[in-house]
Write a protein that binds this DNA or RNA. Structure first.
Lengths: 341, 341
DNA sequence: TGGCTCTATTGAAACGCTTCAACGCACGCT
DNA sequence: AGCGTGCGTTGAAGCGTTTCAATAGAGCCA
């Protein structure tokens, strides 16, 4: 029922070693023998037992990808990019979801460690360099995605969030807005605080511009709606004339409340910029200006970084040295929510 | 660097068999010995090699979950339900995404077969009973999710889509609408055609009610927007007074276009019902009435069906016989898009 | 013909674990 | 004292591969 190389060898009239060679080094086997073995494989419907292969050969074809939020389109896009590139390189991506929980994160790291995966792509909940070092001692390399690594020992692929924040706010200033609000949180999340830093830098360049910070509990649609309601309780003169939201989910939540209030017109009264440029941004009731991150490219690059020692496939850096950190630049996509048609 | 049971055994002064027993059958080992071995494990930071374990023991702890669309919240919710239940039962879910592509589906099935996973949960692209039979011959059982199995040999967990369509349209009829449009596609997708069948049944019950079918190319936001634009080109009198969309993504696309047109008020001119009740439905610009499917419960139940031979954990059916097919009933969630506050 | 090289194939060891028959030992019973 | 009982432990076999030293055979040249 579960055929083994032994069965194939018997049917083809060769030794198991030869069958293995046909599977892994066909160039080392005479053409006629290859054909005979292939035929036997076909006839028996043999499928190599990857578990045994991995035990002996020591390396797996599976790459673990541990993300923060499987429901955020940014991460699923990233995952799809990683999957595609891994498939091209003959590997497979196993997707796991920590849901921003350290406990779940730890569980999945245990699983991956036990399974002796080939490598790990992770968007960590907190600081887990200790854990990653331990994995590395076991021969499992890691690459951080969507966050720069504080530890030089690990590769990372991320987007320059400071630049992204700067671009977003500079755009708002260019269309004439001066009273900017930054909406996002928690500020403990690295990505959020970096975007705020960029926003501050842009405002500082511009005399007469001011930045107000509205911290939220999470990066969700609900939290965006809450923040918008808070804004609406103020007299119109006290409201900002532009909002930079730390991600698109927040921005969409705000959009719905503000546009639905009848009290505020977007972008005339308040212009709005989000972050991530998820598919839904362009399909929103007022198409949302956003900062695009190359999610799929981040995933694909992380896979390359993980699998190539020499880094020849990496996007940035010298060819002779492994590229340990790849930084992408974000890009403004202006739409109706900032008055661009 | 990579410790083995041998190292642990040496440090603890016992045989490897005893170490294995501590790991797998601690009740068979004297208490003092357990303690000594545990200590050695701690000291060495030993992590059992699950690959070797699996090769010898024959069964994996990993369950494959192959879904149609990782970007559809319905499926990610389903995946989370499966993950959670599997974790409770000591298993892990490996998520893979076929993207509605038969080729990708086949690739992942190959991978899972090679990896000798414990079992498979699949929302298939087309008809793959042949392939599933082959997996079963290799000892890998399958459960179909979100679709009834045409083959009695495989378990399935699904929602009664005919009933869902009926409930949706009956609701529209109850609030006084008569000219109903069904928007969805392709009709080749089983779920879509079932929902349409239910819609037809509801309309047939009601003299004076009519049903128009608008087929779309896919179940996406974009396609919904397209369908809405087509509707807007008609003179108001020729438009339906209610729309039943085959899923929430379509409904949201329509909502945006219709609400944004200024020409149509929802629900006054056109009432709208979606399907799936994704999180975003309640957060839409006009909160969307929808048919709720217990996505997480479907995932959890599928895991149980897969892992229990006796079916004692299954939700429906006799305890003595394995429950092969579990059908859930959908539920209406009425919101503002059908005039309910 | 003898010796050499090169290619194709073989057979067994090894990967790290679980399992299981066998063994030793202490204990209680007759 | 002799014997069975049962618990705790051991050591080796085996899971299905890959790898590698050893071997066989063919071809070539002197």
């Amino acid at each position: 029922m579960a055929e083994s190389v032994k069965d194939v060898a018997r049917l083809a009239g060769v030794s198991v070693g030869t069958v293995s060679n046909v599977l892994n080094h066909p160039d080392k086997v005479a053409e006629a023998t290859v054909a005979r073995v292939q035929e036997a494989i076909e006839k028996l419907g043999f499928v190599r037992n990857d578990v045994a292969r991995q035990l002996r050969a020591g390396n797996s074809r599976a790459i673990g990808l541990l993300i923060l939020d499987v429901r955020n389109p940014f991460f699923t896009d990233l995952a799809r990019g990683a999957e595609a590139r891994a498939a091209e390189l003959g590997h497979a991506v196993l997707l796991a979801n920590s849901d921003e929980s350290s406990a779940r994160e730890a569980d999945y790291l245990d699983l991956f460690e036990q399974q002796r995966i080939r490598g790990l792509l992770i968007s960590p909940v907190g600081d887990i360099t200790g854990r990653l070092h331990r994995l590395r001692d076991r021969g499992i390399r890691s690459v951080l995605v969507d966050r720069p690594s504080s530890d030089i020992a690990f590769g990372s692929v991320f987007v320059d969030d400071v630049a992204g924040g700067e671009i977003a706010v500079r755009h708002l200033l260019e269309i004439g807005r001066r009273r900017i609000a930054f909406v996002g949180g928690s500020l403990a999340i690295r990505q959020v605080s970096d975007r705020l830093t960029g926003a501050r830098a842009a405002v500082a360049e511009h005399a007469g511009a001011s930045l107000e910070v509205v911290e939220t509990a999470a990066l969700t649609v609900d939290e965006g709606a809450k923040a918008a309601h808070a804004l609406l309780t103020r007299p119109p003169a006290d409201r900002p004339d532009a909002v930079f939201a730390a991600n698109d989910l927040l921005a969409i939540g705000m959009l719905q409340v503000l546009a639905g209030s009848g009290d505020v017109t977007i972008p005339d009264d308040i212009a709005l910029v989000g972050y991530d440029d998820i598919d839904f941004a362009s399909a929103a009731i007022v198409p949302l200006s956003s900062i695009r991150q190359p999610a799929a490219l981040i995933g694909a690059t992380a896979v390359e970084l993980l699998l190539t020692r020499t880094g020849e496939a990496a996007v940035v850096g010298r060819a002779s040295e492994p590229t340990r950190a790849v930084r992408f630049q974000p890009e403004l996509v202006a739409r109706a929510s900032t008055g661009v048609r």
